[in-house]
């Protein structure tokens, strides 16, 4: 997991697993900002992200014993967070009855590379973040898992509950949605795909 590339505090994790409250506090301070940012990107509102961060760490405290110390703690942390956020979005999605489209029906097209290039060049990070907030839950979550958490396609498939072969489709579709949102505010909007 390259995103928050940092040396993992192995000793602190071990102490936290053993029930050391100070070590748990250190872990929290170390990882809470990244998890909050993850939730902020994955969920529609700031309040959601705050609630989710608190819940994730409450879960983590209980699940810390299940963590396999031979693997990356950060990756595990993001997996737990992704599952939590996706569960939350899915529950809400069921209630709101949205996003029932089949990811497998995406038409594969060849966009105009120059137009795409121009669109990307003209957009700032802030505009992209705003556009991300307007995406559907699955699209936003897919992009966050891939480009924030740096998850592999297998991990994304596992987290989103789709077949591994369709992770690419989900990501591409998410990019199309993003371009459409970005394009809506400019003359570059050219029928969804570029």
């Amino acid at each position: 997991m390259s995103a928050p590339a940092k040396i993992e505090p192995v000793e602190t994790i071990a102490r936290a697993r053993a029930g050391d409250a100070d070590a748990w506090g250190q872990l929290y301070k170390e990882y809470a900002p990244a998890i909050f940012r993850f939730c902020r990107r994955a969920l529609p509102t700031r309040e959601d992200a705050e609630d989710a961060t608190m819940e994730i760490f409450a879960d983590l405290q209980r699940k810390l014993g299940q963590y396999d110390v031979t693997r990356s703690f950060t990756a595990w942390l993001y997996r737990v967070s992704a599952n939590h956020c996706w569960d939350l979005l899915r529950r809400r999605k069921v209630r709101q009855g949205k996003e029932t489209e089949d990811v497998e029906t995406l038409p594969l097209e060849h966009p105009d590379p120059n137009q795409l290039d121009r669109l990307i060049e003209q957009r700032t990070s802030q505009e992209v973040r705003r556009a991300l907030d307007k995406l559907g839950a699955r699209a936003r979550m897919a992009l966050v898992l891939r480009y924030y958490s740096d998850m592999s396609y297998d991990e994304i498939a596992d987290a989103l509950g789709v077949r591994r072969a369709f992770v690419g489709v989900v990501l591409l579709r998410a990019r199309h949605e993003l371009r459409q949102v970005l394009g809506e505010s400019s003359a570059l909007a050219a029928g969804g795909t570029l």
């Binding site: 700031r46 409450a58 795409l116 990070s125 802030q126």
Partner: peptide, 29 residues
């Protein structure tokens, strides 16, 4: 263009514009 798009996405994801909320400053344990 796709590579640039990926980089733009990563940058947008990691650029931090919001500080950690005060209620999250307390260790939940």
């Amino acid at each position: 263009a796709l590579e640039r798009e990926s980089r733009l996405l990563k940058r947008a994801m990691f650029e931090d514009e919001e500080p950690l909320p005060a209620r999250l400053a307390v260790v939940p344990g």
